[in-house]
């Protein structure tokens, strides 16, 4: 797995003096889902955010080590962060649609990247919404405010919005933990579908969810990567007692 096109190499992230992510080397195989699990505060979000340089926005955050995507070190001074982020979609725990219409939410990213043609935008809006399994629910109300959607619909809208710039990688930080069970099931189904086209990295606190949807699982503890293997292996026969304890809910 060490020649995967998307991987981190001895990645550490510091907030000031505090090392929130410690020397993590992790590969994300193409067209598969990698779940990041571990107790709260162990650095999962920090790790995920460094993958599309979202930590740039936090002035005290410092990165050490490398992150490779298609043979490019994304923290290289020559890397265009705008182009990089276009390749990597991100969705957060709390749905955060723009205060605009459903259509505008999706057309937004493509417009940033210079697409002005109305027909082309229409097409992107439709495919993105279809991929996020939201098209049938909203196709008659594209002009309505995105805030009029339910929480679960808003989250799928955010996924559609992330897909609108046609990324190859999708980062999801607990995308279903604020949703009801039905919406959660829809999002999970969606992730399984999207896996056919994208590499997905998902942070989740829900062990069943990790087991259901991921191909690989990485267990984090206090900023370190304790164990990384296929989900099947981690959930049936982990190498470490600690992983076993966490998964079976004995601590966390």
């Amino acid at each position: 797995m060490n020649n995967a096109t998307f991987r981190t190499e001895h990645l550490s992230v510091f907030y000031g003096q505090y090392e929130a992510v410690k020397n993590i080397s992790l590969s994300f195989p193409e067209k598969s889902v990698t779940a990041l699990i571990g107790p709260s505060g162990c650095g999962k979000s920090t790790f995920l955010r460094s993958l599309n340089r979202m930590n740039d926005e936090i002035s005290q955050a410092k990165i050490k080590g490398r992150i490779w995507i298609d043979g490019v070190d994304i923290n290289d001074p020559g890397t265009d962060v705008i182009q990089l982020r276009q390749k990597i979609g991100m969705v957060w725990q709390k749905p955060n649609p723009f205060y605009k219409s459903i259509y505008e939410n999706i057309a937004f990213g493509p417009k940033y990247h210079g697409i002005k043609n109305k027909a082309e935008l229409d097409e992107i809006v439709e495919t993105s919404l279809r991929k996020a399994a939201l098209w049938d629910e909203v196709k008659d109300r594209l002009k309505q405010s995105a805030l009029s959607l339910s929480g679960g619909q808003q989250q799928r809208l955010c996924i559609a919005r992330a897909l609108s710039v046609k990324p190859g990688i999708l980062l999801l930080d607990e995308p279903a933990s604020a949703l009801d069970p039905v919406s959660t099931a829809k999002v999970e189904e969606l992730i399984t579908d999207l896996k056919k086209e994208l590499s997905i990295v998902i942070v989740t606190h829900n062990m069943q969810q990790a087991a259901r949807i991921s191909d690989y699982t990485a267990y984090f503890y206090l900023g370190s990567l304790m164990e990384h293997d296929t989900t099947e292996k981690i959930f049936t026969n982990p190498e470490q007692q600690m992983t076993q304890d966490y998964i079976s809910g004995r601590f966390g």
Binding site: N52, M54, E57, I82, Q83, L84, R85, Q86, I88, G89, M90, W92, K94, N96, F98, Y99, F108, G109, Y112, H113, C158, R161, A162, S164, V165
Partner: peptide, 18 residues
Amino acid sequence: LPRGLKESSFALGATRWQ
């Protein structure tokens, strides 16, 4: 403003000014 709003825009590849 919710923090996620700004980050979502950045994550789509928007510049700070956009």
